[in-house]
Write a protein that binds this DNA or RNA. Structure first.
Length: 868
RNA sequence: GCGGGCGUGGCGGAAUUGGUAGACGCAAGGGACUUAAAAUCCCUCGGCCUUUGUGCUGUGCGGGUUCGAGUCCCGCCGCCCGCACCA
């Protein structure tokens, strides 16, 4: 009777075909059911799916299938984030066209993803490098331009002076270009920007409404926008040495209260005054050059040792003309934030303190903590940033910080030396990229008409196919004909904009495009307003700020340009953790792939050798899977061997989805065994089950009733876990329930009507509760249970509330916080009767001894604590 | 450097959100079945103790709040993510 071993890969193919033939996953656009839009962050088509993708898409698929079972009309699309640097790198390395490389990768990955059995509406698939997609994106750009949401200004880029090319931050390694090895320089280029700062306040305030976003993501975005209310202060330059045309330094500060603690002013290396001074100060010019070699990445700039140069200039203190303050140029002052200049108050800012110690500048505390005496309060190595009362500050002495801030601004405002100002850390979004493989910016530069948008009817501006990557730099720049065009306005010789858009632009509106993926407008209002916002968006935390903030900007910008009515694109967000794996190195210290490594022994004796040569291998730390460390697992081997259900189940088990997981062979095998166990269990239970259409009997014996309670509790618990994306807990529930059903299958009798019914109910529930996670096996079992339907179409069972309530519960009894016994009692027993019963327990009596009971704490349904 | 997060047995983790720490799974050990193996099934499984208990101890480390802390507060340590041109 025992069936053939379940051939998962084989049966999975079968069920995928059935779903496809019945067109199960095409979105029903006419449905009356409530909509539910599930979206996972779409993948970059690197060529092969990654186990992290399996985790991400398995989660999304569980949500999609679960919501479908709950009666929603589900939209669950998939596409490709297909523009970007890797395609160009491949082109340079392998002489293959980026487009060809990308589409080939997409084909491979699509095939792999289809093996996962995802409930995706593949009819809506697109790649961002499809002309049809970027055509619409170019229209959006022109609309943004119209509303002044797109504009040009200069900004700095990393410049490789040998390759004559712009470098991405990740291409700058220790201040040198990754290919040429030449020290990077900074260059000012005129580039295109999106005016995200227009919505700074709205992007900030609306975070509060995103109730189904992780708190940490909201906090990160809040800090990223970085609204700070402060003051703009003006320091007059001393007449000595000051360059022509410069009279003052403007400084933004949130700590105007510390103005009497100022001991220096510092300019950014990029400040106009710095530039001017450097013209005839070679030391300063060299310093600027040194700063520029750090590249444009903020991280590198802030990690660098704090350094400065005394310019020899002084400014007068805004509140005392006789007080001269030295002016430095410092590498930690950012040109992009505030005014590019700061005043330093070393006592109350750590960076300023470090700088002051290095250059022997005064450190005068002006804010004194409550428990300190102003007369002898000194700052050592740590700046004091907390609250306190002002001291050493003339008319401010004794004031609280906030009062002092106001007092300073009010005083300075009288003679125009200060005004209140709000600053944001958020900067406008630079979208220009000097690269080929991106969406062309639809602009023509004409000598007479200046910037001319490409007329909508002339769109799309297609990327030319005949490009060469032999020369470093942007192939569009070198293209002989593409670049040269006639001006659409005056007809004279003009040239195309050769910058393409940041790939973040592509991913900032794809969620909207999925609602009408074939339309010849960016979005069809009726569709997009019906489906948006995305009800559940799932992806990695690494996108917590940029991608999600840009998408929120785009929705707003698309509202302003009349495309959308929904300004928040993602109502629910879930950020899943990464998949990690052990790392391995051979004797030469080179990384090894897990597939080349054989593990021997267990626990402390565990060691690794090279699979083919037997050479010893060092087991390294468990790290994020990355190509450079070779610790990636190719899911296609897993899929071919164990099947999709095993891979999906394992990725959903154990680890909470928001946390990282480690891929282990043992874990995969455990999941695989469970697949077989379920299959066997249904097989074994079959002869004892009531008929599919059998009515509910009037009577159930104790055993049948217990199983029914377990079934209903399990379906209820799994429902709640899936609703809250706690997949690991749902998995544990299912394991536990499977154990119950396993015992019942052994002892129950087919002839006992109540037992047969309870058993069928349990088996049915079990299949339905694991169906979202292991959909293929579920169809297999569903068919075996003689239902002539598909489990994918079956509605989620409703738990019977009456079966969820226990007649008695156990609560712990503590004496002085230590557990001494437990009490079995009715869940609605009164406090009084609980206390009586608890005090009557032998163990409790012994623990109390002859001591006096001081207090009895009773939390109904939870605990009793007797304090003696 | 700045911002955010995480830390519980050999391992992944659970803990009704302040109420019996270790559910469930993996690994391991023992046993059953088998000519044998695989598969399967059953049992044990945080640490300590010449007191095996109604015992002590235990959630990264050190303090604190509370009748009660893995959970809250303060201070450390370690790891991870982001930092605007990787996607």
């Amino acid at each position: 009777m025992a069936s053939e071993r379940y051939n998962a890969p084989n049966r999975e193919k079968h069920w995928q075909k059935v779903w496809q033939e019945k067109d199960i996953f095409s979105t029903d656009t006419e449905s009356e059911r409530p909509k539910y839009y599930v979206l996972e962050m779409f993948p970059y088509p690197s060529g092969r799916i990654h186990i992290g993708h399996v985790r991400n898409y398995a989660m999304g698929d569980v949500v999609a299938r679960f919501k479908r079972a709950k009666g929603f009309n589900v939209l669950h699309p998939m596409g490709w984030d297909a523009f970007g640097m890797p395609a160009e790198n491949a082109a340079m390395k392998n002489k293959v066209h980026p487009g060809e490389w990308t589409y080939e990768n997409i084909a491979n990955m699509r095939e792999q993803m289809k093996m996962l059995g995802l409930s995706i509406d593949w009819d809506r698939e697109f790649a961002t490098c499809d002309v049809e997609y970027y055509h619409q994106q170019q229209k959006l750009f022109l609309d943004f331009l119209d509303k002044d949401l797109a504009f040009r200004r200069t900004s700095k880029v990393n410049w490789d002076p040998v390759d004559h090319t712009v470098l991405a931050n990740e291409q700058v390694i220790d201040g040198k270009g990754w290919r040429s090895g030449a020290p990077v320089e900074q260059r000012e280029l005129t580039q295109w920007f999106f005016r995200i700062t227009r919505y700074a306040d709205d992007l900030l305030d609306s975070l509060e409404d995103l109730k189904r976003w992780p708190e940490k993501v909201r906090t990160m975005q809040h800090n990223w926008i970085g609204k700070s209310e402060g003051a703009l202060l003006r320091f007059e330059l001393g007449e000595q040495n000051r360059p022509e045309g410069f009279f003052q330094i403007e400084v933004f500060t949130t700590r105007s209260d510390t103005l009497f603690g100022a001991s220096f002013c510092a300019l950014s290396p990029g400040h106009p005054l710095t530039r001017k001074l450097a013209e005839d100060n070679s030391e300063l010019a060299a310093f600027i050059k040194e700063c520029e070699q750090l590249g444009t990445a903020l991280e590198d700039i802030e990690k660098a040792e704090k350094k400065g140069i005394d310019t020899g200039l002084t400014v007068s203190h805004p509140l005392d003309d006789n007080w001269q303050i030295p002016v430095y140029v410092a590498n930690f002052v950012l040109m992009d934030y505030g005014t590019g200049a700061v005043f330093g108050c070393p006592a109350h800012d750590q960076r300023d303190l470090d700088f002051a110690r290095k250059y022997n500048l005064d450190v005068t505390p002006v804010v004194i903590p409550a428990n300190e005496d102003p007369a002898d309060y000194k700052i050592a190595d740590i700046a004091y940033t907390g609250p306190g009362k002002l001291a050493n500050s003339r008319f401010l002495d004794g004031l609280e910080m906030e009062a002092a801030k106001s007092a300073v601004i009010t005083e300075l405002d009288k003679n125009g030396k200060a005004e209140r100002q709000t600053q944001y850390r958020l900067r406008d979004w630079g979208i220009s990229r000097q690269r080929y493989w991106g969406c062309p910016i639809p602009i023509i530069h004409c000598k007479t008409c200046d910037i001319v948008p490409v007329p909508v009817e002339d769109l799309p501006v297609k990327l030319p196919d005949d490009v060469s990557f032999d020369k470093p730099g942007n192939p569009l720049e070198h293209h002989p004909t593409w670049k040269n065009v006639k001006c659409p306005k005056c007809g004279s010789e003009a040239r195309r904009e050769t910058d393409t858009m940041d790939t973040f632009v592509d991913s900032s509106w794809y969620y909207a495009r999925f609602c009408s993926p074939k339309a010849d407008v960016p979005v069809v209002a009726k569709e997009v307003n019906k489906w948006l916002p995305v009800d559940q968006y799932i992806g990695g935390v690494e996108h917590a700020i940029l991608h999600l903030l840009y998408s929120r900007f785009f929705a707003r910008a698309m509202c302003e340009t009349g495309h959308l009515e929904v300004k928040e694109p993602f109502a629910g967000l879930f950020t899943q953790g990464m998949v990690n794996h052990e790392t391995y190195k051979d004797e030469n210290g080179d990384w090894l792939s897990p597939s080349d490594v054989r593990i021997e022994g267990e626990g402390k004796n565990r060691k690794a050798v090279h699979d083919r040569t037997g050479a010893p291998v060092t087991i390294g730390p468990i790290e994020k899977m990355s190509k450079s460390k070779l610790n990636t697992i190719d899911p296609s081997e897993i899929l071919a061997h164990y099947g999709a259900d095993t891979a999906r189940w394992f990725m959903l088990s154990d680890s909470p989805p928001e946390r990282d997981v480690e891929w282990t062979q043992a874990g995969a095998e455990g999941a695989w065994r469970f697949v077989h166990r379920l299959n066997r269990l249904i097989e074994e239970a079959l002869p004892k089950l009531a008929k599919a259409e059998a009515p509910e009997p009037d009577d159930f014996d104790e055993a049948a009733k217990t199983l029914r309670q377990q079934s209903h509790k399990a379906i209820d618990a799994v429902e709640q876990d899936l609703e809250n994306l706690r997949f690991n807990r749902a998995v544990a529930q299912i394991y536990e329930f499977t154990n119950h059903l396993g015992s019942a299958t052994k002892s129950f009798e087919a002839a006992n009507e109540g037992q047969a019914f309870a058993l069928r109910e349990a088996a049915t529930f079990l299949v339905q509760m694991f169906a979202p996670m292991m959909p293929h096996l579920a169809e297999e079992c569903w068919a075996r249970l003689q239902y002539h339907t598909l489990v994918v179409d079956s509605p989620w069972p409703k738990a019977n509330q009456a079966l969820l309530i226990d007649e008695t519960i156990k609560i712990a009894v503590q004496v002085n916080g230590k557990r001494r016994d437990e009490l079995t009692i009715s869940p609605d027993a009164s406090k009084n009767s609980i206390e009586k019963a608890a005090l009557a327990l032998d163990n409790v009596k012994r623990s109390i001894g002859d001591k006096k009971v001081k207090k009895v704490i009773i939390v109904p349904k939870r605990i009793v604590n007797i304090v003696i």
